[in-house]
Design a protein around this nucleic acid. Structure first.
Lengths: 147, 147
DNA sequence: TATTGTTATACTCTATAACTATA
DNA sequence: TATAGTTATAGAGTATAACAATA
């Protein structure tokens, strides 16, 4: 008895799989959201802090977070108000680096530690499962085979 | 030579994996977003239409889409303006069912067909890869092992 | 009294366009 | 003239609270 998968089945199953994928990612993101909430920090600010492992030009942050420069100004203002970053003028005086304050660094460590501890990929998958998952996601993301 | 994975490695790799997962889902969602754009329909309206395979109480839709009842009213207004749904009073007269019009149904079919055709899980993974991916995502989502 | 849907309002996230300062 | 950041403004998406109708 040969296992045959016709196109209709395949499509229906693919849809289910895509939904699973999106839900998995959403649950994973929920861990981050929850951590940010515990710390009483809006998610966008938390995301910015995590990227600031070292001082970075605002422009660079805009590229990293895939958003407009003006929005980074907005985030920087909020982070500054909370005493979490300083703006440091660069040697090219047009550039401003965002640098975590001591308080900002402490918060960054807290966030990354908590997120790591509760990451779903750690809590729900074992080493083998993680090893199996990676190449599949890489194949999914690999745009070299783009149609 | 034994392959040892210490905790620090594991955490770093898990973070990478979580990022891959989120990016995969985002690319998958981008397919949906692109389809909605082609059809000139805001994403939330497209999502609602997809759920309406058959008439459903607004309340139910709110549960499905995990949002507030008032927001469903908002969506329903927009869908109605576009001639894509009707509001049908239920036998319990408090309830209103959202029902796709002929035009709405046609649009729904167009959306689901296009999304299926361009789904990343179909275009980038083969049958075996999809079969391997599913149980991993299920393990990730399985909350029975919740801590 | 509890539930469904509606209204008015407001908040969060993010972008666009025009601007200033520096290069 | 091109680039970095800023300002003012606007838009999308979504929620909260108070309300009306029905159960």
């Amino acid at each position: 008895m040969v296992r045959v998968i016709d196109d209709e089945d395949r499509t229906a199953q693919a849809r289910e799989l895509a939904e699973l994928l999106v839900r998995s990612a959403e649950e994973s993101k929920a861990v981050f959201t929850g951590t940010a909430a515990e710390i009483d920090l809006p998610v966008p600010l938390a995301r910015a802090i995590v990227r600031l492992s070292e001082p970075a030009p605002m422009r660079e942050l805009a590229d990293d977070l895939a958003c407009d420069r003006s929005y980074i100004t907005n985030l920087a203002d909020q982070l500054e108000e909370r005493g979490l970053v300083d703006r440091v003028t660069g040697t090219d005086r047009r550039i401003k680096l965002l640098r975590l304050t001591a308080q900002g660094q402490a918060l960054r460590e807290k966030i990354t530690r908590r997120v790591s501890e509760s990451a779903l990929v750690l809590r729900r998958l074992d080493d083998d499962q993680r090893a199996a998952l990676r190449p599949l996601l890489e194949a999914l993301l690999d745009s070299s085979g783009e149609s």
